[in-house]
Simulated assay, not measured.
Amino acid sequence: MSTLKPAIRILHAVAFGTALAILLPMGASAQNITLPEKLKSAGTIVVGIESTYPPMAYKDPKTNERIGVNIDLVESIARELSVKVKWEEMSFEQLMTSLTTGRIDMIGTAISDLPSRREKLTFVDYLVTGAQPFTTVAKKDTIKSEADLCGKTIGAPRTTNYYPIAQAWSEKNCVAAGKPAATINGTAGATATRLDLKQGRLDAAVLGPEFVAHLMADEPNTYALAGEPLTRTLFGFAFNKGETGLRDAVAAALTAIIKSGAYGKTLQKFGLERQAMNDVKIDAGT
C-alpha cells in the first residue's frame, strides 16, 4: 500500500489549525485505563462498521476479509482494553441510530466529528481529513482548481457531510461571486460517486482525501485532483453522548497506541502518514 504516498500531497491543505480539545496524557497505559464495568464483565465491545470506504474499512476483493485503517486501530484499542471486538456490519445511515439506541457501543467507521453531530454523540478524534474535489484525467485540463467547479456537475455521497459542504461551497464561491452555481448531485455512496464520475455523469466529485489517494493509487492515470480541499475536519470514533466512560477508556487506549508506535505503523501501512494526529483529542472537529 506504500504506493499511496505520492497522492497524499493533497493533505498539505488540511494541516491542523488551532482547536480547543481535551488532550490525554501520552503516558496512558492499559494498567490505568478504567473500562465501564458492564463492558469489562462482557469482555466485548460491539462496534458498528460500514466496510465500503477504502482505505478506512473495506472488504479485500481477494478474500472478502474486512480490512482497513479503522479495523486495525479498533483491534489495537481492544487489545489495550483486554476485550474482544464484535463487529456489526450496517449501512452508514444506520450507524448513529444504532449507537443512540444501544445496539452498538461505538462507531468504528470513519465518521467526521462535526458540531451538529455532537448533540447526541461524543468523539475520540484520531485522523485529519477534509473534503477533496477531484476529477478524471480526461477533464483535468478544464478543471484545474476548485475555482473551475462553478457551473459543473459535482457528486458527493448524500449521507455524508461532503454533500452539504459542496452545496455551501458553491453558494459562497460561485453564486455569491456572480458565477454559475455548481450542480451538486447526491450519490448513493463513495463507490457510486466513483462510478458516476468514470461514466461521465459527473464533472467532478468530492470525497475524503484518504479515499481519493486510494483511488489514485488503485487506478493510476484515471483521476486528477481538482484543486485544494474545500474544508478540513477530523475523523473520530463515535459514542453515545452519555457514555463518556467508554469514550475516555478508548481515548486512553488510543493514546497508548500512539506512544507505542502501533498507530503510526497502521497509518504507514495504508499510506496515510500525513493525516496523523500527534495527540488524541475529544470533540475537536470543526
Rank of each mutant, 00 (worst) to 15 (best):
V250N: 10
F239H: 04
Q31P: 09
P36T: 06
T109A: 12
K139C: 07
A249N: 06
L23A: 12
I154P: 01
V206C: 08
E93F: 04
S51V: 14
N240R: 07
K5R: 12
T266H: 02
G245I: 00
M1N: 10
I143W: 00
V206D: 06
T244R: 09
Q275H: 05
E119W: 03
A217K: 00
A57H: 07
K269F: 03
I77P: 05
F211R: 10
T135V: 09
A181F: 00
F237P: 11
I49Y: 04
D203W: 00
Y53V: 15
S260L: 04
A42R: 14
E80L: 02
I71K: 08
A42V: 03
S51K: 09
T160R: 02
E146N: 13
A30M: 06
I257C: 10
A188V: 11
T109K: 00
K265L: 13
R9A: 15
Y163H: 13
A15S: 13
I67Q: 15
T160I: 02
T34D: 14
D125A: 08
P180R: 01
E80C: 05
E80Y: 02
T109N: 14
L202F: 02
Y263W: 06
R9N: 12
I49N: 08
V46D: 09
A181G: 04
W169V: 10
A138C: 01
